[in-house]
């Protein structure tokens, strides 16, 4: 291995794939933060975003910027629906014992998994399992040369979107009333309820925002990849989950940093190992983190129920 232009290209390749993971990890972590429950259906929201985007593009051929608000709306709607189907039924009991019940939390986790499987199968039924191509006018695949380094235009768009999303979320969480509510519910749901926060509404808002981000991620990655399929959410979903765990579960900047770290590690590892081994790198990093930093790299001590 040599530190040459190819190596630099590998780092850039890693950053672009890390950005894809990060884009997904942001919404994932936001939703995890508020309920402390993994939302397995986030990958399907991402896929829905991509398919709705493609349908709008093929049906009406609008300018790309017009697709985004529509995808955002569909994302918000699917987030609200998801919360209603998979999460709300398990919050019927508001006493402290139920709120801290591990069984209740695991049931929620499984119900989100169920929604994810059903949604994926329905999409398979409607669209088929094949890859669907994106019309060429919308692809974010133009090569951009920065000196000797080649980057796809999509990588830059995804990088910029991740940065904007991260910034906007930090603003929402720390500078607005809604954000204060989300942080309060995340910290202690029962306490938040006692001080007069409408917890249900806060949770729905979080799902809507998180799923908007997820759906946008889906269409952007679809345009960048050039093809979408009902299974496209799975692989980045797993990586986003790993990034979230490494980042300390509820730290959004932590998840983004870890997503970039994963992308760059996978890419550089390809220089030394066969790329068939790259998932090994991801999971080794996860294990090492959990052994030496049980709170995650960017986590802090939190009350565990």
């Amino acid at each position: 291995m040599v530190f040459d232009v190819f190596f630099l290209q590998q780092v850039i390749n890693g950053l672009s794939i890390g950005c894809v993971y990060a884009l997904m990890a942001i919404g994932f972590t936001l939703i995890f933060g508020v309920l402390n429950v993994v939302n397995f259906a986030h990958g399907e929201v991402y896929t829905i975003g991509a398919f709705v985007g493609l349908m709008v593009i093929t049906a009406m051929a609008p300018p790309l910027l017009a697709v985004v608000p529509l995808v955002l709306a569909v994302g918000a709607a699917s987030g609200v629906g998801l919360e209603r189907i998979a999460f709300r039924p398990f919050r019927r009991f508001t006493d402290e014992a139920s709120q801290k019940s591990r069984a209740m939390r695991e049931a929620t986790l499984l119900s989100s998994l169920a929604v994810s499987i059903v949604t994926r199968e329905i999409m398979m039924h409607i669209f088929g399992g094949d890859m669907q191509g994106i019309p060429s006018g919308y692809l974010l695949q133009q090569p951009v040369a920065i000196g000797p380094i080649m980057v796809a235009s999509g990588s830059l768009v995804i990088f910029a979107t991740s940065a904007v999303m991260l910034g906007a979320l930090q603003f929402l969480l720390y500078r607005t009333q809604t954000g204060l509510g989300i942080r309060a519910v995340s910290n202690n749901q029962l306490g938040a309820r006692y001080v007069g926060i409408n917890t249900d509404r806060t949770i729905v808002t979080t799902f809507a925002v998180g799923s908007m981000l997820g759906a946008t991620a889906g269409i952007l990655v679809g345009l960048y990849d050039g093809a979408i399929s009902p299974h496209m959410g799975f692989a980045p979903g797993v990586k986003a989950f790993v990034a979230m765990v490494m980042g300390g579960l509820s730290s959004i900047p932590g998840a983004v940093a870890c997503a970039l770290l994963l992308g760059v590690s996978e890419s550089i590892a390809t220089e030394f190992l066969s790329s068939g081994w790259k998932d090994l790198i991801t999971y080794s990093l996860l294990v090492i983190t959990l052994v030496f930093f049980p709170q995650g790299l960017f986590g802090h001590g939190r009350e565990r129920a």
Binding site: Q10, N13, I17, S275, K278
Partner: peptide, 11 residues
């Protein structure tokens, strides 16, 4: 299932 070949291509 892998969709990103940039690292392989660069190598």
């Amino acid at each position: 299932g892998n969709r990103d070949f940039r690292s392989i291509l660069t190598k």
